[in-house]
Design a binder for these strands. Structure first.
Length: 648
RNA sequence: GGCUGGGUAGCUCAGCUGGUUAGAGCGCUGGUCUCAUAAGCCGGAGGUCGGGGGUUCGAGUCCCCCCCCCGCCA
């Protein structure tokens, strides 16, 4: 069976981040598994290098565009090599064969009547040199990026008849429920298509860094627009439009994408393929995003996870295991060192690594490291059966890309091993002279480890190779067939005494993200508070407690809030102070809080302030807030209190 | 605002077409073994299954209303 697996091609406008690594790890896992079970496999990844942004970025650095693209593309490729990603091809959209293939596809679509010339009309920002849809414009029609006025501009463009494929696509989704994974994403795509599809502008004349139209069309000004160019890579990599020798790998089995680009892969891409008369991929798998310590990653926060950094400190395969195990496919995941360390200690050190160590120790004492499976079936057929049931169920999870379930199940095999040792206590049997039984238990566990390692291999290739080596075998399609499919046992071998594979990790090995450090600081031990004898507060301007209580502070609940027209600072609030009717309070906090975000929340109000008028509107109180150079924040009760509760 | 999906133990989640005392992993905790990486194994605590109505002999599971969260669209 042929099995083609792809990652998206990564845009060369920045360094590889954890998201890129995640997609690539999943794809690599699927590819390795496919090879292991004996499929003819082709695994494609690469870089997307065309477009105006790349052209501009290169210009800024005063580099030839190609040179710029070469450099960034190489950083991706190097990272994958460092991570031992087993790609069969690394495609670049600047490859000549790719360009040729895209042109061939364009011609074919043109011939089929799916491409026509018209005008692209939209709101154009001259300064940003880009078009924006109506919905993205600012209130007055300004550019969402720079705020300047936009103008309606007409640009000559070729269009792809996407609208024609509305029905065929819907029918396809209907007939192939497994096309879009996870299934929850399927609804989104379907409802989008049901909402109607507009034809797609697929060429541009405003920049030149891209694939030009086929010469026969004689349109030197036109360049292919990003998605047509980029999506085609999946077939041009196989030689579409040039040497088509590898085209029999098409259709792809799994095409992995981030959830942000699902629409392009689940709508445009299949439509293009339909137009070209090519079959559609079996699965488009959309995975989620990663946050760090519960927060969105961003350059400005300085909390971006650098996959190279994590791998350097914790090891690529541990990192990889963590990402696969931690998150259900499609869901967003959270990266934290705590979670990573917990996973490593609990799953890798305790369950797996320690189990291997246990049998190394026993075999050393009981049989001079020699392990023989001869009596395993006699004494442990139950354990073997249970393990085989688990091992043979794993394939199902892979089909739905449920890597975390796959691993969760696989781990039960280690539990069987740990329990068996406990239950059969070989150390007791040895004392009783029942050596056969003791050694059978050790051999059982060796076999369980061997089998589990085979199934773990696609996720932790090098680690499992080490385990296999210690257990005197090699992980190959042959050993997969022998140990998993045919439920065979290991030949007699001498186990290698190796140091613990997964030493426990006690402290974070990396520097924490800036925010996280602040949050964790209070966990440090608190020194005992000394009793202060003399006040160091300046006596100037002090008031008595009675004077303080002349101010009535109350907790209020914001019932409603809206912007004050013509004011950039003021919000008009309706605040419930537990009185017969709510107060109207005008607060100068609009720059920091949206009206919407306040509704239903609680604030601290000066309740006995003489009413005042602000911009002609009555204000019956004041909201307490704290302000410093970083902005303003409201003073609120830590927990919800009854409206009108007094503060003091 | 429209449409999905979801709100179940401290945390992350499983619970299919309604049926015995609501589950798993991690965490916490008591015990126990000693081959082992302060690992393993056994046990325990902890949940009015978002709220309120309803259908039913019986509802986490079905229906209605409400609240809240994520996502997609506008």
């Amino acid at each position: 069976m042929k099995n083609y697996i792809t990652t998206p091609i990564y845009y060369v406008n920045g360094e590889a981040h954890i998201g890129h690594a995640y997609t690539t790890f999943i794809a690599d896992t699927l590819a390795r598994h496919s090879r292991l079970i004996g499929n003819e496999t082709y695994f494609l990844t690469g870089t997307d290098e065309h477009g105006q942004k790349i052209e501009e970025a290169a210009k800024k650095l005063e580099k030839p565009t190609q040179e710029f693209a070469d450099e960034i593309s190489a950083t991706f490729r190097n990272l994958w090599d460092e991570f031992d990603i087993s790609y069969d091809q690394f495609i670049r959209t600047t490859d000549e064969t790719h360009k040729k293939g895209v042109q061939a596809a364009f011609l074919k679509m043109h011939e089929n009547g799916d491409i026509y010339k018209d005008f692209y009309e939209g709101n154009y920002c001259v300064s940003c040199e880009s078009f924006f849809p109506e919905s993205q414009l600012m209130d007055g029609g300004g550019c969402p990026d720079c705020g300047r006025a936009t103008t309606i501009v007409k640009e000559e463009s070729y269009f792809f008849r996407l609208s024609k494929y509305e029905k065929p696509l819907l029918e396809y989704y209907e007939a192939h429920p497994e096309f879009i994974l996870p299934k929850s994403r399927r609804n989104e795509v379907i409802s989008f298509v049901k909402g109607g599809l507009n034809d797609l502008s697929v060429t541009r004349t405003s920049f030149s860094w891209g694939v030009h139209l086929p010469e026969s069309l004689n349109e030197p000004k036109h360049v292919m627009y990003v998605w047509l160019d980029a999506l085609m890579n999946y077939v041009t990599a196989l030689g579409y439009g040039s040497d088509e020798a590898k085209m029999d790998f098409w259709p792809a089995n799994v095409q992995l994408v981030g959830k942000d680009i699902l629409r392009f892969h689940a709508i445009y891409w299949p439509a293009f393929l339909m137009s070209l008369g090519l079959p559609l991929p079996k699965h488009i798998g959309a995975h989620g995003w990663w946050t760090r310590d519960g927060e969105k990653m961003s350059k400005s926060k300085g909390n971006v996870v650098d996959p190279r950094e994590v791998s350097k400190h914790y090891g690529v395969e541990n990192f990889r295991y963590f990402m696969m195990r931690e998150v259900p496919f499609g869901q967003d995941g959270d990266f934290s060192q705590r979670a990573l360390i917990d996973r490593m200690n609990s799953d890798l050190s305790n369950d797996l690594g320690n189990l291997l160590n246990r049998i190394i120790g026993m075999s050393e004492k009981y049989s001079d490291f020699v392990i023989d499976s001869i009596n395993v079936e006699k004494y442990h057929s139950k354990e073997l059966d249970d393990a085989h049931t688990i091992l043979s169920s794993l394939e199902n999870y892979l089909g739905e890309l449920q890597l975390h379930r796959y691993l969760e199940e696989l781990w039960k095999v280690f539990t069987i091993g740990n329990k068996a040792i406990e239950e059969h206590a070989p150390w007791v049997k040895i004392k009783e002279g029942r050596n056969d039984e003791a050694l059978a238990t050790v051999a059982l566990v060796a076999n369980l480890l061997a089998k589990a390692s085979v199934m773990l291999h696609s996720i932790m290739p090098s680690t499992t190779a080490t385990i296999a080596d210690a257990l005197g075998f090699e992980i190959t399609t042959e050993s997969y067939t022998k140990l998993i499919l045919n439920k065979g046992l290991l030949d007699t071998f001498t186990i290698k005494k190796i140091p613990p594979l997964f030493p426990r990790v006690d402290e974070p090995l990396m520097q924490e993200a800036p925010k996280a450090m602040i949050e964790e600081a209070p966990k440090v031990e608190h020194p005992v508070l000394e009793d202060k004898k003399e006040s160091t507060v300046s006596l100037e301007g002090l008031i008595t407690i009675d004077q303080f209580f002349q101010t009535s502070l109350k907790i209020g609940t914001v019932l409603n809030a809206q912007e004050v027209p013509k004011s950039s600072k003021l919000l008009k609030l309706q605040v419930d102070l537990g009185e017969d009717s709510p107060r109207q309070i005008i607060a100068g906090i609009r720059e920091y809080y949206s009206a919407e975000s306040l509704i239903g929340t609680q604030v601290c109000v000066v309740a006995n302030l003489k009413p005042a008028k602000l911009m002609g509107m009555l204000s019956e109180g004041m909201i307490l807030a704290a302000k410093d150079a970083d902005g303003l924040c409201l003073i609120r009760p830590e927990k919800t209190r009854l409206s009108g509760s007094s503060v003091g």
